[in-house]
Design a protein around this nucleic acid. Structure first.
Lengths: 171, 171
DNA sequence: TTGGAAAGTCAACAAGGCTGACATAAACTA
DNA sequence: TAGTTTATGTCAGCCTTGTTGACTTTCCAA
């Protein structure tokens, strides 16, 4: 009774069975349950240390782009500056993030992870990578390519920009 | 400079380039940005009506399994009963959900969407399905199969159960 | 029949979103 | 140079949605 092989339709027939409402509902629930798994491991670590997901996001993107400004982080995270500021303040106070005044433009604050910040980032991303590595390996390279293709299509256009930029190591 | 075709490795060579930390990081960010897009459309509708994501989740799963009990919903949603109860109460008060006292076991409440509840559910799921339909169509059936395979691997085992059950229409 | 378990409710608290108002310093512009 | 814009920080207050703890009602089994 399981119609899981509907997505194998291709060729000139093009039955589009993979676009039925039922298949879309499965996709929606897959996103819901998978996202929970995706965040579960870091959430545990964060909770132990008294932080939340908001701290994780900040630490992740500061690690990805050291020296990034507050404003840039705001546009990536899509939250208000008041909200980000609260998180950033605790991270700076706890010595995980350093905010250096800009040299060219002194209004800007350039954000860096301290040694301790890098350690936290690593323990968080390691947990998340481990889960994703297992998922990727079990699903195989073809599946991973499809996974990324669909997710990329699902992003808002302006977010796709941030995502794509992250892929190029030399800008 | 983009190494996006790394995932095309297969055959007996098995270079596993799709398992590098860089590729895993891309996958992690893809989840982050895509989930934002995934929830953006329903979030707008919900906010207009004064509801939040928690209401969406409740309405979604009550619609999927009419007559489900509060306890069953709890195990799917993974929150405390107190948290769910607050959401459920507003939905019942607003006439979107009906909670019928169980006939066999009077401690249980069986949950159903009212006419109005079904309308809200439909407007929410329609928005979400539309985005997913476009993403699925643009990515193609092979990609969709991979998308689902990876997400399924990423779920916690107990959640995979709920996901799989949802696929069988006749239990 | 009585004591424990299970389902659900009420109350209070915390995290982390949000808006609005305002301050400061630096940069830019007319 | 005076006035405006930009980048950031901060205070106050609100909302949603998670949490724990205490309580009631109902069921079931010893």
């Amino acid at each position: 009774m399981a119609e899981r092989s509907a997505s194998a339709t291709k060729g000139r027939g093009e039955t589009l069975l993979f676009l039925t409402d039922e298949q879309l509902r499965r996709g929606i629930e897959a996103m819901f349950f998978a996202y929970r798994g995706f965040t579960a491991d870091p959430d545990r670590i964060l909770h132990e240390k008294g932080y939340g997901r908001a701290h994780h996001r900040a630490v992740h993107f500061i690690n990805r782009t050291p020296g990034t400004t507050v404003n840039n982080l705001l546009s990536i995270l899509g939250v208000t500056k008041q909200s980000l500021n609260r998180v950033l303040r605790t991270l700076v106070d706890d010595g995980l993030v350093e905010a250096r005044v800009g040299t060219r433009d002194k209004r800007e604050r350039h954000l860096f992870l301290t040694e301790a910040g890098q350690q936290l980032e690593h323990s968080l991303s390691e947990a998340q990578r481990n889960r994703m590595r297992v998922a990727f390996r079990n699903a195989g390279p073809e599946a991973v390519a499809g996974f990324r293709a669909v997710l990329e299509e699902m992003m808002d256009a302006d977010m796709r920009r941030h995502y794509a930029n992250g892929g190029e190591t030399a800008p």
